[in-house]
Simulated scan of single mutants.
Amino acid sequence: IVACFWYGAQTAAASGAIVALLIRSQWFADFNANTHFLGHSGLEVICFVVIWALQLLIIQKGMETVRRFQDWAGPAVWVMMLLLAIYLCVKSGTFAFTSDIPMDVLLEKTRDAGVPGTPGSWTSLF
């Protein structure tokens, strides 16, 4: 049951990331806005099915194939995270563990995310 859930969660997250990347193109954004299937955009459904099929192909070949894929994908994820962190530091112009965001702006932006208390405090955990 856990494996089935994890397979679905990974497929949904990966396809959502692909959709977010694709809709930066105007053609895909228009397709995403104007095509619907089963209560989702056509682009979301297509990306979900493609990612689902790719994962199924990897799993279908056996656990050794999953391990080989994991040996390649694991380091690739870390490299991409490092590149993204460097890019964000360069884009922001600084590298700091603190934020100068005014508290009222922070509270306004996190209210819709379901954070009940002040972000970064113990009250946000409950």
Rank of each mutant, 00 (worst) to 15 (best):
W78P: 00
T118V: 15
K61I: 08
P116D: 03
A3I: 11
R68A: 11
G114N: 02
F5G: 13
D71N: 13
Q26I: 07
A9P: 00
L107T: 06
V19T: 11
V115G: 04
F28Y: 14
M103N: 03
Q26P: 11
L125C: 06
V2Q: 13
L106G: 03
W27G: 05
A96W: 00
S92R: 12
G39S: 04
A12T: 13
F48G: 01
S121R: 13
I18Q: 09
L57K: 07
C89P: 00
Q60I: 01
F126P: 02
M103H: 10
V105K: 14
A9D: 08
G117L: 03
V90G: 02
M80T: 11
W72M: 14
T123A: 13
V115W: 04
D71A: 15
L56Y: 14
Q55Y: 13
L43Q: 04
F48V: 05
W27H: 07
A17L: 15
V19G: 10
N32P: 04
S99W: 00
L57H: 03
G62L: 03
P75V: 08
I86H: 02
A3C: 01
S25W: 13
H36M: 05
V50I: 15
A96G: 06
Q26R: 14
Q26L: 10
W122Y: 09
K109W: 01
Y87V: 04
C89E: 08
